[in-house]
Structures are given as C-alpha cells and as structure tokens.
Design a protein around this nucleic acid. Structure first.
Length: 296
DNA sequence: AGCGGGACCTGTGGGC
DNA sequence: TGCCCACAGGTCCCGC
C-alpha cells in the first residue's frame, strides 16, 4: 500500500460527533490489526499531562478505532505478554479539538510543519506506514492510557451520554439550570459530542431560542430538541460518510456538507423557514446564529 | 455552587 | 497589492 499523497481523514476545523465518527470509521479500516513499531512526540504539549509516554505504545496493536463524544479511541491489545500493567496503555485517545487531523503516510514521509506525533505502524505481512497527528493550532491532545489512568481524568469521568443513544426520558432531566439551553448542549458532561455547529443547527431545527434558560423548556420542547439533535447528527454522519468514502486529499474538496447548514455561518442571511434575517449573538463567548422569528 | 468569560493557539479573510 | 487585526472555538481555569 502506498500513499503518494497524504490520506487526510478529516479536513475541516471544528470536528464534532459526526466528524469524529467519520474519522474513527475510516481510520479503523486502515489501523485495525496494525502494530505500533515506533512513536515520536514532536511537540511535547500535544501529549496530555496524565498520559503515559508514547513509547509505551510500542509493541501494542490497534484492535479498532471508535468514538466517544469528540474523542477518537484506539483500542489496543498486547503483543507478547509480560508487561507491567500499571505502565501499559490499553487505549490511545486523540482529541482533535479545532484543527487536529490524522494522516496516513508512506513509511518514508517526512513530518510536516504542523506534525505533532508520528507513529510507525505495520500490519502483519504488509508494508509499514506512518500515522501522523497534525494540528496547526496545537489545541489537540493525544493520550496513552489504561482504565486506571482514565479514571483520574475528570473530563473522561464526567463525560455525558452519547446523544444518539439517549431516550427522551433520559434527556429531559439533563436540561437543568438557568443557563442558556445552548450552553447546556455544549457542556460535554451533559451530552458528549455536540459542538457549536450542531448546537446551533439542532436548536434551529427544534425551533428553540438558544438563549432560553435550560430549565424553561417544557417536556415537549425537550423531546423535540432531542429529536432534532438525533436527526441532524445521523444525517451528518451519513453525509460525511459519503463525502469521505474516497477520502479527501490534502488540498482537496471540502465536500458539500457545509452547504447544508441552516444557520451556522449564515448570520445576516435569509432564514430558510420564514425568509427573515438570521441574527448573530454571543452565548458562552461562542458565536451563535439563530432566527428570532422561528426560534422561541 | 454555578455560571460567564478569558487564555490558549495560528491560519484565514475582510477591510482599508 | 499588502498589511493589520478580528475571528474561529473546545476545554481549562479563574473570578464573581
């Protein structure tokens, strides 16, 4: 297998649940069964402070790559046994944050300007290759961990349920407090995986004002909001899945996904429902676009 | 206690 | 054309 161009497994900024899900699925196809032969950290701040050293990954293999919230998780299994279990990672977690990307490259490819971590990998009886973690804005983190270490990570321990696995009965009680409902959706300890884009899109679809206090939503509104979140996330995952099927090259297409936003990035433009002007405001310091007519 | 907002970063793009 | 600066936002951290 040869990659003359890097295989960019996600190109957009702001990866949320659907994007991370897409990366996990496409990475899993490449990485499952592959052995970590070498690991280099090119920028120390890319390693989570609680992480085991990246060298502890060497000799482990990836069973699969999956998603939890906005985290990519490589499930690992040991090569030959006999390790000290305290210092042995059973997973590699990657948070792409804003600009993180995973790239599959040739064995001989040189790191780029923004490459933060390099893993040399090989599937039995196949050619070696490299996995790069690139991150221009350096917000992203990699984290080699086992269950014991993960339990010390507050973010992990407090991570809320997956929105696609939630029932109305479980979701509605989560909408507590007087803070804006949008703040609630962005709080990863309430639900895991929703970011600024899908919070705005879901609230528009549900017809709910993002500034409404979370505890002011009726059960009917809460249920409608969950339906909207699930419809949009599922639709986005399907959409990403189709646009990523032949992969995006380094200077390649952005796909059509962003053309499907109803409100995100459309401040001042026309609301598709009522024809009025979409308004922009700040909630939690995050830009928020909504329709003051359609969202009550 | 719970919420709001600044810091962290750097590439991008709009305005002059 | 080129420069400058505001803007983008997930999470941590601090202050009210």
């Amino acid at each position: 297998m040869s990659f003359r161009r890097p295989l960019v497994l996600w190109k957009f900024t702001m990866p949320e649940c659907p994007e991370v899900e897409t990366v996990a699925r496409s990475l899993s196809a490449h990485i499952s069964g592959c052995l970590f032969e070498r690991a280099s950290l090119l920028r120390s701040s890319a390693l989570h402070p609680l992480s085991l050293p990246l060298e502890t990954l060497i000799g482990r293999s990836a069973r699969a790559v999956r998603r939890r919230g906005k985290l990519l998780i490589f499930d690992l299994f040991p090569g030959s046994g006999g390790e000290d279990s305290d210092r042995t990672p059973d997973s590699l977690l990657v948070h792409l944050r804003m600009t993180g990307r995973m790239l599959v490259r040739d064995a001989g490819a040189a790191p780029g300007k923004h490459t933060r971590c390099v893993w040399s990998m090989r599937k039995p009886d196949a050619s070696p290759f490299q996995l790069f973690f690139d991150d221009a804005r350096t917000f992203g983190k990699v984290f080699a961990a086992n269950q014991e270490i993960l339990e010390k990570w507050d973010f992990w321990r407090n991570l809320g349920p997956e929105p696609l696995e939630l029932s109305r009965e479980a979701f509605i009680p989560l909408l507590r407090g007087q803070r804006p409902i949008k703040s609630c959706l962005l709080d990863q300890s309430v639900v895991a995986g929703i970011g600024n884009i899908y919070a705005d899109e879901s609230l528009f679809r549900a017809g709910i004002d993002p500034a409404r206090p979370a505890d002011s939503l009726s059960a009917e509104e809460g249920g409608r909001l969950l339906d909207s979140i699930q419809e949009i996330l599922k639709w986005a995952i399907e959409n990403k899945g189709s646009s990523i099927r032949d992969y995006l090259d380094a200077d390649g297409n952005k796909g059509s996904f962003q053309n499907n936003f109803s409100v995100y990035g459309r401040a001042g433009k026309t609301c598709f429902k009522c024809g009025g002007e979409l308004q922009k405001l700040k909630i939690n310091g995050r830009s928020t676009v909504h329709c003051p007519v359609c969202q009550k």
